[in-house]
């Protein structure tokens, strides 16, 4: 019994250390963003000066990132949900190929995708310099997450039979799609949406090559700040970024928790009444 307790203690200690490794730098960076002079330490006093400085200098990148992420969400919803639906329902070899292809942009480094986009469309001046150029990259990168998230939910319910049930009651294709398919993959759409927005706001690998001086996003601004400005400003900027992204991540965690049981095919349910 004692050795079990010791093993438990060792594992707990290790896990706590891992947790510290992940969380301590976040806390440090928050503190640094609120400290007058990080080199001196907390004695120099807390201040919002750096946060305001970032807000004044980089406000536009924040709004641009929010705008792009919402546009990205819209496009991935329109493209991704029907795609996931077709992939679930058809189940043919073709759909396996389509799924494989769609996942490529997350298998291939963002750098390669960005260079490919530039080599194909870099010459189209107005497109190259517009924010939609970045949007295209973000959609490529986030679309697989939307598709997979919806696919996961659709795979856990017997969509075919549910649709047959609706059809037997007289529902046509459109009615089935809006009454049965969409409501039943709501959780997948929600999780996918949060993931898409989170990833789009933080996307750097593609964006760094796709952006122009007039289309800087938040992470591009962050990289700028890290490279050229004092630590406190980088930290304050990071703080703003965390304020945007942490609620999204917490929401993601909340919906990832086990849900109530869903309709599952041929599941014998014992009578309890």
């Amino acid at each position: 019994m004692r050795s079990h307790k010791m093993l438990f203690g060792l594992q707990l200690g290790f896990t706590l250390a891992v947790c510290a490794f992940l969380i301590v730098p976040v806390v440090l960076s928050i503190l640094a963003g609120l400290t007058s002079n990080y080199f001196v330490g907390l004695e120099s006093g807390l201040t919002l000066r750096w946060v305001f400085e970032v807000w004044d200098g980089y406000r536009d990148t924040i709004f641009r990132s929010i705008g792009i992420s919402l546009a990205c969400l819209l496009v991935t919803l329109v493209l991704g949900v029907p795609t996931a639906y077709v992939l679930t329902r058809s189940g043919s070899r073709l759909s396996r190929v389509v799924e494989e292809l769609l996942m490529l942009p997350i298998a291939v480094p963002g750098l390669a995708t960005a260079l490919a986009l530039i080599s194909a469309y870099g010459g189209m001046g107005s497109f190259r310099t517009s924010w939609t150029f970045i949007l295209v990259g973000h959609v490529l990168f986030t679309l697989p997450f939307m598709v997979r998230s919806v696919l996961a939910v659709l795979a856990s319910i017997d969509l075919k039979t549910l649709e047959e049930g609706a059809a037997s009651l007289g529902a046509g294709f459109r009615q089935r799609f809006f009454d049965i398919v969409l409501p039943n993959c709501r959780n997948g759409i929600l999780a996918g949406s949060l993931m898409v927005v989170t990833l789009s706001i933080g996307e750097f690998n593609l964006t760094w090559l796709l952006h122009t001086p007039l289309t800087k996003t938040l992470p591009v601004g962050l990289a700028d700040a890290y490279a050229s400005l004092r630590l406190e400003i980088g930290s304050a900027y990071t703080l703003i970024f965390l304020l945007m992204i942490v609620p999204l991540l917490l929401a993601l965690q909340a919906i990832a928790r086990p849900r109530r049981k869903r309709f599952i095919r041929d599941d014998p349910v014992p009578e309890s009444t």
Binding site: G165, G170, P183
Partner: peptide, 17 residues
Amino acid sequence: ELRNVGMVFQSYALFPN
């Protein structure tokens, strides 16, 4: 959807939403 037949499925196919 045009035949107006009532159908009861083995798995019931009740809409969870």
